[in-house]
């Protein structure tokens, strides 16, 4: 190896490590501060030089706020959106990829047009719909709109297109109904993409903020992000230890899901980008 090569290697690694510090330090900081005994006060260098270990922040947060309830709410919300998405969107995607019927392309484009609508543009009328349905402060109010997801339909349809038609045709000849072609053949074969879409939806809705914020008016119905944001606004600068403890609880599930499905998530996001490009 010549000197130029060694030097360029060194520069590359310096950049890689500096940027990794940028991305990982805030997570490390949050984690360390959450375990600091609040009695010592929070010094500026607390995460660089920890002053001890204590679970007091977690205990206080779980006993003085509705945090246990927020965890349950968020888990119900994110899981049911993920589950609903893979059922509803996969059925729709099956019809749009394997079905033969007039106006198929029209319906596909119509459904995809939902991607063009920013949540901001429909926030007020959507909330009015929820008031009319009496869904404000209910799980339905945040779960059902989350299930209607153009990106889920898109990714699943794209995947199902790669399943050979001959497979379905031979089952058709044997007299299978279209629904059983969906349920017994296409759905099991789409498992990798279904898992990816479910993981993406779970992460997205576990983390969602703006819509749950306007929908959940009762403290017992808050999701973790809404609860922690409200708690932080109320506590001001005095209870950082508890706020960080809540943050750790908020980010760990999505990080675990993300690390488990990382490869698939990367592939599906790259696929989506390639399609925008086209």
């Amino acid at each position: 190896m010549n000197y130029v090569k060694i030097l360029s290697r060194a520069v590359f690694y310096a950049v890689l490590i500096a940027i990794a510090f940028y991305t990982l330090f805030p997570l490390y900081h949050m984690f360390i501060v959450s375990f600091q005994p609040s009695a010592v006060g929070l010094f500026t260098d607390i995460s660089l030089i920890p002053r001890g270990f204590s679970l007091k922040n977690y205990i206080d947060l779980f006993t003085t706020t509705a945090m246990p309830r927020w965890i349950v709410n968020t888990a119900i919300y994110a899981s049911f959106v993920a589950l609903g998405t893979i059922l509803l969107d996969s059925l729709t995607a099956f019809a749009l990829s394997k079905g033969r019927f007039p106006l198929k392309e029209f319906f596909f484009v119509l459904i995809l047009s939902g991607l063009m609508i920013p949540i901001q543009a429909i926030l007020i009328p959507l909330f009015k719909v929820m008031v009319t349905l009496n869904w404000v402060n209910t799980y339905w109010g945040i779960i059902i709109p989350g299930i209607v997801s153009p990106s889920g339909v898109f990714l699943l349809r794209q995947y199902m297109l790669s399943i050979p038609d001959e497979l379905l045709d031979s089952a058709r000849v044997d007299g299978s109904s279209e629904f059983s072609l969906y349920w017994r053949i296409t759905l099991p074969l789409s498992t990798p993409m279904i898992a990816t879409v479910a993981a993406l939806k779970f992460i997205m809705h576990w983390n969602a903020f703006l819509f749950p914020l306007i929908m959940m008016r009762d403290e017992n119905m808050f999701t973790i992000p809404v609860g922690i944001a409200t708690f932080q606004a109320w506590a001001g600068a005095s209870l950082w230890g508890q706020i960080m403890a809540g943050s750790v609880v908020a980010v760990i599930p999505t990080i675990v899901v993300f690390l488990t499905f990382q490869k698939k998530i990367v592939e599906s996001l790259a696929l989506r980008a390639r399609v925008i490009k086209r």
Binding site: I19, P26, W206, I228, Q232, V251
Partner: peptide, 18 residues
């Protein structure tokens, strides 16, 4: 580098605020 993408933006903004 990709990890922060999986975290809740409101939560990590509060961490950054600290």
């Amino acid at each position: 580098y990709f990890l922060p993408f999986a975290t809740s933006s409101i939560i990590v903004s509060i961490v950054w605020k600290n």
